[in-house]
């Protein structure tokens, strides 16, 4: 069952097209990842979904209802974990979660019960009476998540929830997302970490310049580039000495990207050109420090589709 249906969605800020004619369906019970570099339009799309930003064109339905017409009904079933921490540092953890839960219609004893449940879920029940002022970044992120959970939403939208935190908190958050999903929650998860998207998401939409340029499961996306293999060459000589056009003339080479002292060469799988590539470097007196053959991953997919790295 479709929980979110987006059709021909466009949002412009002046001449900048932040979301460009996107159509997308998210199915109940899945973890849907939105993967893309900073500025790709992920947060704008999330803001439109949560009603924070008005659309210029297109329609969005959530839970079968038009977001614009049935705003409050839809909002009650969504929990947003914003990219920026959205917690009050002078309120205790319990007060923070209880306050936001109260806004979703929870009353009386139920508010405290649900707030404590949410804090327990993110591992902060022991800190319930403390204000987050002196918490670590990871603990604040966990509280940020708890504030979106207490009202038991059907759809949880997490906008880059692991930015700038320690590995332990990241692991905790990723496990929490899996647990929430196993309990029946649909999750929309935006990130620019391809490992997270690969690890968590049932389906991934790759965004760039406001458009979804590819969509599918991790394997489906990788299959887009399985007819190619990538050779990563680390050089000890200056990169300026490499004639990229010369390299492109080698049979089987599809594309080349360079970054600092590294050159990534994508070639057709059915043509073995490794010896020719190595001999090209040696004949031009360019010293190779290391070689690595890489099977396709989401980074490769993004690179192939856009010519840029995810973190560019």
């Amino acid at each position: 069952m479709a929980i979110v249906e987006i059709k021909d969605l466009t949002k412009k800020y002046g001449s900048l097209v932040a979301v460009d004619n996107i159509s997308l369906t998210i199915v109940e019970g899945e973890i849907f990842g939105l993967l893309g570099p900073n500025g790709a339009g992920k947060t704008t799309l999330i803001n439109i979904l949560t009603g924070l930003v008005k659309v210029d064109k297109g329609t969005i339905k959530a839970f079968g209802q038009d977001i614009g017409k049935n705003g409050d009904d839809v909002k009650r079933q969504i929990g947003l974990v914003p990219q920026d921490l959205a917690i009050y540092e002078d309120l205790t953890c319990l007060e923070n979660v209880s306050f936001f839960a109260g806004l979703y219609g929870l009353r009386g004893r139920l508010v405290k019960e649900k707030a404590m449940e949410a804090l327990d879920f993110v591992g902060l029940s022991e800190k319930a009476g403390q204000a987050p002022k002196k918490f670590s970044g990871g603990m604040k992120r966990r509280l940020n998540i708890a504030c979106a959970l207490a009202h038991s939403p059907r759809l949880i939208i997490m906008d880059e929830p692991t930015v700038g935190i320690d590995p332990q908190s990241r692991k905790h958050i990723l496990n929490s997302v899996k647990t929430l999903n196993s309990r029946g929650c649909t999750v929309i998860y935006t990130t620019h970490y391809m490992e997270e998207a690969e690890d968590l998401c049932d389906r991934i939409g790759i965004m760039d310049h406001g458009k979804i340029i590819a969509m599918g499961s991790s394997n489906e996306l990788k299959s887009l580039v399985t007819d190619q293999s990538t050779l990563i060459v680390n050089l000890s000589s200056p990169l300026e000495r490499v004639n990229i056009d010369g390299l492109k003339e080698i049979k089987g080479v599809v594309d080349i990207w360079s970054d600092e002292n590294t050159i990534s060469i994508s070639s057709s799988r059915d043509i073995n050109n490794l010896d020719k590539i190595i001999s090209y470097f040696s004949s031009n007196d360019i010293h190779i420090a290391g070689l690595e053959s890489k099977s396709p991953n989401l980074e490769t997919v993004f690179l192939t589709l856009t010519g840029r790295k995810l973190r560019d």
């Binding site: 705003g71 409050d72 009650r76 947003l80 959205a86 917690i87 936001f100 806004l103 979703y104």
Partner: peptide, 10 residues
């Protein structure tokens, strides 16, 4: 940014 959190609530 709590303002946005308020606005996404009903």
């Amino acid at each position: 940014k709590t303002g946005n959190r308020l606005l996404v609530s009903p």
